[in-house]
Each structure stands twice: as C-alpha cells, then as structure tokens.
Design a protein around this nucleic acid. Structure first.
Length: 501
RNA sequence: GGUCCUGUGGCCGAGUGGCUAGGCAGAGCUCUGCAAAAGCUUCCACAGCGGUUCGAAUCCGCUCGGGACCUCCA
C-alpha cells in the first residue's frame, strides 16, 4: 500500500516518494495579512493540515513551511503601484507593522480554533528581504531579469525560449503557452517599463508615499509578489523539495512564476508534487474579495452576518470541508453547514461512547460476517487516505461504523458479535483518524467539570421527581435545560445522559 | 477570445464501466410516562441527445447549463 497524490504538474495521480525519506519538505502558501481571513481561506489551511497530519501518521518526518505575506502585493499592477498593506494602514491610521500584527494574531487565533497544527516554520516576507534581493541579483546575473527605473522585471520570453528546450516552458504547471497569452491579452496602461506584457515584477521601486520600503541595489522599494515564496522555500526546504501546496487560484500566475524564478536560480523545478485545493463557492460562485461574497471567520464563529442563519463552530466547518474531496469545489449554504453540524454530533457521540468501552482481549466473534465487515470498513480508512486523501470516503465508512456502535449501545447487537481484536482495532483507528489525522476535537466549555457537577445534580433531582411520577417537575428541568442548550436523554439502562446542542 | 473544470435524488456531497457511498431533510415502525436520541425499514438520481460496449453516472461526440484561470485572490 502506498500513498498516491494528484500532482497538478503531471495532471495525474502519482505514487508519493520523498526525495530523502523519511524526510518530507512541504511548502504551503500562507495568508496575506492585510485583512481578515474568510471561509475560503480556511480550506487550504485545513486541507494541508490534514495532509501534514497524515504524512506524520505515515511516519514521515515533515518540515512544514507556511509563510506569512506581510509585505503586501500590488493593488493593480501597471496602474497604481501601491502596496495593499500600506494603503490600508493609512486609512486606518495604523503603522503598517501594527496592522500586520493585528491580522497575524487574528489568523493564528482562527488557525488554533480550527485545531490546525502550527507549521514547523512560519517565515515572514519582511523577515527575508535580504534573501529575496540575493535571489533577484542572481536572476539578473544569469540574464533573465532586467532593471527599469528602479524596478526589476523577470524576462518571461527569454526564459520560455531557453527552458522550453529543456522541456520546462513557462506555463508548464497551469497548462498554458505563451503564444496564447500574447494573442489574447487586452491592453494595460503604463506598461512601458516592461519589455513584454508577460514579464512580472521581482522588485518594485517605491513611490514617495509608500511606507513599506527597503534599500536595494536598485534603489528603495519592495519585493514583487512571487519572489518571497521562492526565496523562503529554497532557504528552508532546499533547491528541490517534495510538496508545494496552495489554492487553485494561485496556480497561475503565482506558482508558475515561482517555478520560473527557482528554475533560473537552482536549475531545478522547486517542488516535485504540486497540490492544489479547489475553491469554496457560495451560490455556485467562488468566494472571494472581488465578488464581495466573503464570510469572515469571525462572522462564521459568531453567526454575526446577514447571510448566516446561525453561528457555526470551527469543528463544524472543519468537518464540512473534510466531507468533500479537496480538489472539488465545495458550495457553502446554511443548509449544508447545518447538516454537517448534526452529522458531526452524531458521529462524535458514537465515537466518545465507544472509546469508553473496555474490551477483554482474546474473545472471538460470534458473528463472523459482521466481524469481517467491521474490519473491512476500518482497514479502508488507510486505503482511502492513500488515494489522494479521500477524507469523504473515510467519513462515510465511519458513519456506517457509528450505526454499528449505536446498535451495540442500544443492545440490538451483542458486544461479542465481533472479536475483541476487531473491537480494539476499531477503537484505536477511530481515535487515530478522528483526532490525530482529521484533527477533530470535542467541543466542551473550559469549566466543564463544574458544569458537569451541576448537571448531575439536576439529573438526580429529576430522577427523584420521575420516580414519584411528578412529571411536571421532571419535564420542567428537561425543557428549561433545552432552552439553555443542554439536551437530556433517558438511556435504556435507566441512566440519563446529556449533550450540548 | 484563449486555457481548463464541471452538471449525481428536496439539499450537500462520494463515485475506479457490471455489485445502486455517506450525511441532512421526508415517511413508517420499535423503544419511551411523554420527549430526545438511537435502531430498523422506506421514498427520491445520475442535464439532454447520439455513439462505443454483452453492460455506461462512469468512455467518446454533440447540444444546453454552471464555474475557474487568463488582473490581487486560498
């Protein structure tokens, strides 16, 4: 059994083999901290967190690098060479770095609520200006970039001509060729600095009002959009590393430019496997700033948005994302999120109950067929994950298993129907997958211990009332707790359990 | 205009040519003082039209619809 992943570069599933097993280098494009993260941003970070966790689970020693873009990009290239971050800073009367800090903190807060593991290294663009300048110098020295009025541009045409001969044309990742680009572009203003429309900026001269600026051999300015990822990935992962991830919308031009820059500097395509997650849509349209249809994560968690019928917890969103395959689009709707919320609750309750059961070793299965079925469902977890991280299929199996678990709980199926070995395997694999690989956690308030005491007291009072057939009192306790978000359930064994809605 | 993806039941979503994922919602039953939850059963499907095949949701073609990238974008 071996892991297969879909490589955007080859457009097919390939067996994943690290360059230097057991070490794996993975780079994922992180956020631009010029604003709040929204639901769309959550997808790559959750997707690649699960990929990271799965690689760790397989025993790889992974260095996971995810950058923070805090140097800003151009608002609209060629027209207004303005830094997004410094522009907003002026509007909000904040220091650029204060703004960057604010949104970085918010981003980290959201990541931890999603229970995403922190990356091994989280480099910032502003912390690597020197490396970026060095890289640009090298590209100029090799003849693939030129200076114009204090800015530096990458010569795409020359790169394409030279590297096409080596089988590495510009556009190899996104599957487009330069001729098509030339034929179909519309006119842009103020392009005179560039020799060719396809050229992209490596270094941009800073206009006087620009706050974020650094000294360089070409004058004061700031780095272009693509160079930071090339500089930081090669610094921390080497000239050639295993996995490069990001959203599909970064494939062109961002990742294409990264490939060009790194290939010139290191004579190697930087990453072997390029993984791209698809977009989250809303009413069929991509969620994105330009469409004005984003739902910020803070809104999602609080329910504070006209689009939202209620708040959705981070785990509901995580589960929602895991229920689809990462390369397909995923459509947001209240209905879909509510379905995920209920589904997760059901799954989690079955899991928690089963994980508390104690199985004696050495017992055999009284129902061989059922035993085999359970075993099959559990062993398929690995097969599905190995098939390009098919989390949705694993979850489907888990739901079948939770029906089985609930049947044992309700005593429709005997505990001894399956062997203790199978039961222990199920118990172990549920934990491994739900908690370690999928990164799901139970959602409990911090003062849970105290609350539990109070609830047990109420349950006990209600039990007394019930035994005296005082249903007025017992129903009052149960109904008012529902109003507070606590659901009491009278179990078959005479006990009473509760869950938070 | 160029490049590419996609169209699955009321909704969300898996689907490697043959054995109809799964979730939510709906219906019935069981359990229950009543609930809630759970279990069992059940309804509802592969955009349309051709073709290949013994057999197609899955492959091919056309038509219609939706979307992405080509500009900052996860």
């Amino acid at each position: 059994m071996s892991l297969k992943v879909y490589n955007s570069l080859s457009r097919q599933k390939e067996i994943f083999t690290p360059i230097n097993a057991p070490y794996v280098g993975m780079y994922v494009c992180g956020p631009t901290v010029s604003g709040e993260s929204h639901l769309g941003h959550a997808r790559p970070f959750i997707t690649f967190d699960v990929i990271y966790r799965y690689l760790l689970q397989l025993g790889y020693k992974v260095r996971y690098v995810r950058n923070i873009t805090d140097a800003g990009h151009f608002e609209e290239e060629g027209r207004e060479a303005e830094d997004k971050i410094s522009k907003k800073a002026v509007l909000e009367k904040l220091e650029p770095m204060e703004l960057v800090q604010k949104y970085t903190n918010l981003y980290h807060w959201a990541m931890s609520r999603f229970n995403n593991l922190p990356p091994s290294i989280e480099p910032t663009a502003t912390g690597h200006i020197v490396e970026q300048i060095e890289m640009i110098k090298k590209i100029i020295a090799d003849g693939y970039a030129y200076e114009a009025n204090g800015s530096v541009y990458f010569d795409v045409e020359k790169y394409n001509t030279d590297f096409s001969k080596l089988g590495k044309p510009y556009g190899m990742l996104s599957g487009r060729n330069l001729e098509d680009q030339l034929d179909t572009t519309r006119e842009l203003d103020n392009q005179e600095e560039k020799r060719d429309k396809n050229d992209f900026a490596l270094w941009k001269s800073a206009p006087p009002e620009h706050i974020m600026r650094w000294n360089s051999p070409w004058g004061e300015g700031f780095p272009g959009w693509h160079i930071e990822c090339s500089a930081m990935s090669s610094k921390y992962l080497g000239e050639e590393f295993d996995i490069h991830g990001g959203g599909m919308d970064l494939q062109f031009p961002h990742h294409e430019c990264e490939i060009a820059q790194s290939t010139v500097c290191n004579h190697k395509t930087p990453a072997r496997f390029w993984l791209h997650n698809n977009m989250i849509t809303i009413q069929g349209k991509k969620m994105g700033k330009s469409y004005n249809n984003v739902i910020k994560l803070t809104e999602l968690f609080s329910g504070d948005s006209p689009i939202l019928e209620q708040a959705y917890s981070p785990m509901t969103i995580r589960f929602f994302i895991l229920q689809s395959h990462y390369r397909g689009t995923l459509d947001f709707s209240n209905e879909a999120l509510q379905a995920s919320e209920k589904a997760l609750k059901r799954l989690w309750e079955a899991y928690e109950w089963y994980s508390k059961q104690i199985f004696l070793e050495g017992s055999t299965a009284s129902d061989k067929t059922l035993d085999e079925k359970v075993q099959k469902l559990v062993t398929e977890f690995d097969e599905f994950m190995d098939d390009d991280f098919s989390t949705a299929k694993v979850l489907a199996n888990m739901f079948e298993l939770s029906s089985f678990i609930n049947s044992i709980k309700d005593k429709h199926i005997s505990v001894t129907a399956i062997s203790s070995a199978t039961a222990l395997l199920l118990q172990k694999q549920l934990k491994v997958y739900l908690e370690d690989v999928f990164g799901l956690i139970g959602e409990r308030s911090s003062d849970y211990g105290q609350l539990d005491g109070v609830l047990q007291l109420l349950i006990s009072i209600r039990k007394d009332a019930k035994s005296k057939k005082d249903f007025m009192t017992s129903d009052k306790i149960r109904n008012e707790l529902v109003g507070l978000g606590v659901q009491l359930k009278d179990e078959k064994d005479g006990g009473t359990s509760y869950s938070f809605n």
